[in-house]
Amino acid sequence: MDELIFFINKVIISGTVIGSIYALGAVGVTLVFGILRFAHFAHGDMMTLGAFFTYSLVAILAAAGFSLPIPLGIALMPVAMALTSVAALGLDKGFYAPLRRKGAKPVTLLIASIGVTLMLQGVIRLFYGTSTRTFFESEPKDIFRIDMSWAGGTRPITITEPQAWMFGLVVVAVLALHFFLTRSRLGKGMRAMSDNPDLAQVSGINTALVVRVTWILAGALAAMAGTMLALDVSLKPDLAFNIILPIFAAAVVGGLGQTYGAIAGGFLVGFAETLAVFDWTVFLRPFRENLPEWLATAQGLSLVPTEYKLTVAFVILVIVLLVRPTGIFKGLST
């Protein structure tokens, strides 16, 4: 039983956490791709930016002696989401819109987004330095322990408070996004523009407004994903640069431009990563007496050594590109 609890803690919970973060990030990437038709490389740094907005707000309020029964990082996340949306609109107005007006091709916008990602990185590190920070300096990180003794387990299933919030908020976010895209006029306009930009224009859809809404959503989702990652682990200025690659992999695996595909891709990549580095020897332990010696004493029976965790996302990506180049759900072309 303890082995199963270990598996739940190490794979189910960790995989859901990282999968949620990838899914939120990949949805943002895929929305921007659907509307503006370019892979937005600066999305990872928008995540970092959002996390730093939350961090700064928390630091200010904590210094003022303010505290709430829920983690401040969760409580203040909506404000950071709004700030990041504004920042995303600013990035579009300052950097991408001028290029679009000149009739730049998607590949030019892609290169520009690499430029933007470098600028954001420079600015973030200029203000926040390069050190690692944590949200839980002024308040404790509560851990819920679900007692499993009724099932014969000696160890509990553990889940931290931010993780519990995260599961709830991700469900809320996905549902909200779903209703926005399928029920609201603007959401349908977004889907229309993603489906057929020329016809959207001909129909009189205000494409400039749709573009703005897209950036607002992308910024908010990025801030949410970034904050959650920072709450779960820690806040590093280069946090997002390591995460944008699996997020892209998730978006491509799901089919660029496909919102539900991105969610599926995010969880697929998240679980694949956790499962690939999971050490299966735990499950051999109960049967140790009956196993041949070489198997009973095996060390580290994981599919992939931990050092290669990052490559898992790309191996999936490569397989998908080889087998079904437009992703699991059919993606858009540029």
């Binding site: 520009a112 430029g115 933007v116 470098l118 600028m119 954001l120 990185q121 420079g122 600015v123 200029l126």
Partner: peptide
Amino acid sequence: QMRVFVLGLVI
């Protein structure tokens, strides 16, 4: 870090 910023700006 500034040189990272400058690089991005130059792009």
